[in-house]
Design a protein around this nucleic acid. Sequence first.
DNA 1: CAACCGTGGGG
DNA 2: TCCCCAAGGTT
Length: 354
Amino acid sequence: MKREELALEIVKDFPAEDFRQNLIEWFKKEQRTLPWRENQDPYRVWVSEIMLQQTKVETVIPYYENFLRQFPTLEDLASADEQEVLKAWEGLGYYSRARNLQTAVKEVVAEYDSKVPDTVREIGSLKGVGPYTQGAILSIAYDLPVPAVDGNVMRVLSRILLVDEDIAKQSTRKLFEALVSSLISSEDPSSFNQGLMELGAIVCTPKSPSCLLCPVQDHCRAFHKGIENELPVKSSKKTQKTIRYRTYIAENEDGEILIEKRPGKGLLANLWQYPMVLEEEAEKGWLDGLKIEEKGMVDRIKHTFSHLIWEMEVHRVKVISGTFNGEQGKFVSKNELTVYPFPVSHQKIHPYIR
DNA sequence: CAACCGTGGGG
DNA sequence: TCCCCAAGGTT
């Protein structure tokens, strides 16, 4: 069955008008007070949507408030120094979001007279703005009836409409976009989309949803069948790979510590760290061209990313002589080290070393 | 498509 | 400890 036909089949006999009314009324009454809900400024909505990608509301709030203080307008962000933008993002993760956002904002200044475009085609062409974010901005900032399907929406609608497609698969999002398109309010698409997400965030939660408090309980097929905990169907991700590194706290005769800059692409792009070498490539007595004197292992650090694991042996060494062959390395004073501005997360010289 | 790209918190 | 999760996008 084609996707549109399947969507029509699913919403057949569904009381859409009742559902819309209950959802929107609930949202207007119960929505949380959040800094990005002060007004409909497209720039403010945009920033919030980027920050909220894969990130909890409570985490985003302080970052958002600080970011808007530093870059109050789209023009301010467009003309800002990239290092400052990344610094403001420090600790939020997924740092390409920050770069893409600034790139896109610059394009809006240059190509759209500093006005955030209001069409799917134009806004969707901006860097970092995908299918979800374009729908979110268009509906929330411009009151346009466009689907904004995120994880919340798929969870909520999979229960209400009894959809058992695997939401881990990218293609499934399109089915839910078709469903939302047929259900969305033309009167208040903003409250409809936000209502679905808000419901997912505070009532229709992943584990033990609060069905007794749900404003659309009457319309929920999963609740009526008592299988709300079986939905949504989501295939589990596979286990992460483990990479072993040796990490050096390398001190020279002046008491300075060596740090290196990571490559400009890939994981933690451009972030500074203590020099790291793959464990199997760690040479005794040498570190990328530097002759060193081993002082002993001082710690073992395990850091889990979303898709891989680092296991690091931390060694303290004394630099005897030689020139560092790493990408970009330099010695900094211990004093400078503790406050090294960018982009080490949380004011630690190495994000994963205390 | 599936892999890549962070981080912090909850169960 | 381990797994899952959170207003996803890019390649």
